[in-house]
Every structure is written in C-alpha cells, then in structure tokens.
Design a protein around this nucleic acid. Structure first.
Length: 288
DNA sequence: CTTATGACCTGCAAGC
DNA sequence: TGCTTGCAGGTCATAA
C-alpha cells in the first residue's frame, strides 16, 4: 500500500515518539510476514537508544547506538500507530514497542503480513552504513545521493516497459503503483512504452513528474483509500482526491476528456489516458 | 548478467 | 443467503 509519500508521512509522525528515546521493551506479539530477517531476535535491541528514524525508498530504519539496526517495511498494509497502553490489542498486532512514554506505546499492525519489523546488520555502501535488507535498492528521488544523470543512462538501457522500470526499486526507489501511474499520466507517457525508446527529454520530464507528484502527495499526508493507510495518529491522507489516473477507470481525463483505461500487465493494474499517453508503434531500439 | 512471472496473505466487494 | 472470483498501496525467489 504505502509508497514513498505515505512512508515518509509515517516517519515524520513517528519521529517525535522515538528520536533520542530508549527502547524500554520490544515484543513480537505475532510473527509477521515470512520475510522477517532471522538475523537476531527482536528483543536484542532492548535498552538501545534510537538516534534517528530514517527512510530510504519505502524502507524505515531506526538508527541505534549499536552495530545493529531496527528495520521496518510496511508492505501492503503495515502501519505504525501510537496507542494507549491500555487499549485492547488489535487483531493484526505484530510488534509492540515501549519507548518510555507513561501512557502510550508504539504498535506495528499488519493485516496482510507482507510488512515486517526486524533486526538487521549494517553494511557499507558508498561510504554509508545501512541495513543489509535494503542495501541493494537505489536512492529515492529526494535522497542527496540521488544521481539523475546516472539514472537517465540506466533507464536508456532498460529493455522493459517504463512502468516496470519505475517500479524496480534497484533503479530508483520509493515509487509504487499509484505514483507510477500518476507520474506517467503527468508526463504523457504510455506505461508500456519500452524504456529504451524514450528520449532524454522524455525521461527528464518523467523524473520531474515523479518528484512533483510525490511532493504534492506528501503535503497532503499521502493517499488513503481506507483504514489500511493512516498516519500514526489515525489520520488519513488526502491526496486521493487529486489522483488523475490511478483508480479512475472509465472516468474522463481532466486534460482531454477521454476515458481513463485500466490494463493489466506484470500482475499489476495500470491506469492511463489512451489519448494523452499514446504508445509508439514498436519500431525497435534505435539503430547506430 | 537481464527480464518476466507467480507466490506470499487477508479481507472486501461484486456477480451469480 | 452463500459461494466463487477478482482485486488491493509490495517484494522476492525462481525460471527463462
């Protein structure tokens, strides 16, 4: 569910509850997805101090005063909530963290179990120590390490539909199904266009669309369709009302009035305007 | 190496 | 009122 703007909204909401705090207790109430690292039991970080709450792409990472990190991924339905300690356990409660507040605790809740919280070891990448779980993903578009030139070259060599490339976290992280469709709509590029047929200008337009769409979404607290994505205080995000393509099948395009279409490829839905976002006849890769 | 596919899991809505 | 089918914000192992 959550893409970069939603994960960042959660990070900002959670930060004041954890930054500089000591982990008084941490408990795996119910095992989450089978992706959880088995590097160490979660209670290993008890008594550690949380120095920073960081994010790369869709991964959250609690930086500790240890050689270990506490890592979290929300998957499709994971959420962090600040709850009263005396509130009943939620049906899908996975992890409970007490950071010393007298009345409140942090809960990780996840209906679909694709999310997880785990201990991870640190590895060095580009002179920076980051958790092994996401050491291979590329920087996201807001990361100071984001290198547009390098990315443009990478995309130019991809023999795959541009939508797939946008979703590939090792190319650029943070983009998911909603913001891929929204960015492509904004850049007037068909999701099935082969990446290596895009001109440099088209790729630049696309990247600035990704940034623009995500910046706007972040200002609205992300996109909520239901209770599966909410901020740590239970509030929804309000970007859904501004969506132009995603989830708008058979509704008119706000630019030209044509009806938005939904197609399925790569096991995902793609929404686009058939008039504004035309696919080129496959002429193959450029020669020479 | 690259790219494509389906598996993982729960719950909801629509159609019969 | 069931039952079945399809769909959902993501990632990963495996196959080709």
């Amino acid at each position: 569910m959550p893409e970069l703007p939603e994960v960042e909204t959660v990070r900002r909401g959670l930060e004041p509850w954890v930054k500089g705090k000591k982990i008084k207790s941490i408990e795996m109430v119910h095992k989450g997805g089978n992706r959880s690292s088995t590097f160490a039991p979660i209670t290993t970080v008890q008594d550690a101090r949380i120095l920073e709450l960081k994010r790369r792409g869709k991964f959250l990472w609690f930086q500790l005063n240890r050689d270990l990190a506490l890592v979290a991924h929300l998957g499709m339905s994971g959420q962090f909530l600040i709850q009263p300690k005396k509130a009943d356990d939620e049906k899908h409660l996975r992890v409970r963290i007490d950071c010393g507040d007298r009345k409140k605790e942090i809960r990780f809740i996840d209906q679909r179990t694709f999310g997880w919280v785990a201990i991870d070891e640190l590895v060095e990448v580009d002179g920076e120590w980051i958790p092994r779980s996401f050491a291979r993903i590329a920087p996201d578009i807001f990361d100071p390490k984001f290198d547009a030139k390098k990315l443009i070259r990478k995309i130019a060599n991809k023999k795959s539909a541009i939508k797939r490339v946008l979703l590939d976290q090792t190319v650029m992280s943070g983009v998911g199904n909603i913001y891929a469709d929204e960015s492509l709509w904004r850049a007037r590029i068909h999701p099935e266009r082969m990446a290596n047929t895009l001109s440099e200008d088209e790729v630049k337009t696309l990247l600035s669309s990704v940034k623009k769409v995500m910046t706007k979404a972040l200002k609205q607290g992300g996109t909520s369709f239901d209770a599966l994505y909410i901020n740590v205080n239970g509030e929804s995000g309000y970007f859904a009302v501004e969506l132009e393509a995603y989830g708008r099948e058979d509704e008119p395009c706000s630019r030209c009035g044509s009806f938005i279409r939904r197609i399925v490829f790569g096991n995902r839905s793609s929404h686009f305007c058939p008039n504004c976002q035309k696919n080129l006849k496959k002429s193959g890769a450029k020669r020479g």
